[in-house]
Design a protein around this nucleic acid. Sequence first.
DNA 1: GGTACGATTGTCT
DNA 2: GACAATCGTACCT
Length: 215
Amino acid sequence: MRDLSGTAFFDRPVVEVAQDLLGATLTRCAPEGAVTLRLTEVEAYDGANDPGSHAYRGRTRRNGTMFGEPGHLYVYRHLGLHHCVNVVCGPRGAASAVLLRAGEVTEGAALARARREASGVARTDRDLARGPARLAVALGLDLADDGAAVTEPDGDLVLVPAVAPAGTVLSGPRVGVSGDGGNADLFPWRFWLDGEPSVSAYRPAPPPRRTPPAT
DNA sequence: GGTACGATTGTCT
DNA sequence: GACAATCGTACCT
């Protein structure tokens, strides 16, 4: 059995890591308290080989973290409104990452809910981390956490893989990815735990916008 | 320097 | 079920 502690867990093929992350717990310690959630839904992005990945077109100012060490967070802002959280995987430079799409808050639910309310909307516990942007809010993560390591046992961010198989893992097309050229079926790299209520609802990517023909 | 668009969410009908 | 919000980044001229 390989030693998968520390960065070794993340220094593997991204699709492999993604599935192993299901059931893992991610704890975020902040001055106001700690929030722990159990990951129930993720998506894999395979760096330069994956048209849906931010890294497909090479290294840029935004995605530089993806090209760094595995086991670090890649946080980016989406639509100027939300934050999405990834964990860098594979060997350094592969620019692979796993998007954390949803989780179940197992500790610090009160704090997570307070954060959600502060962002404008209060919902049920089930909804606290149901969806990538909500997950980021629940954990209190934003761009300032881009590049943070999750492999330090004493750090503010600690990701602990599940010790036992988390349950039935299902897979399917990724959500909201328009950069795959419409070939969502070629990358069935969305993984979630069967029967988990915290898994976000599936929404197919909207068709790419086209300039209307000049009639 | 300018423009188009996005790994989503919340609200409105 | 459909659409607007909102701004940083990437890409083009």
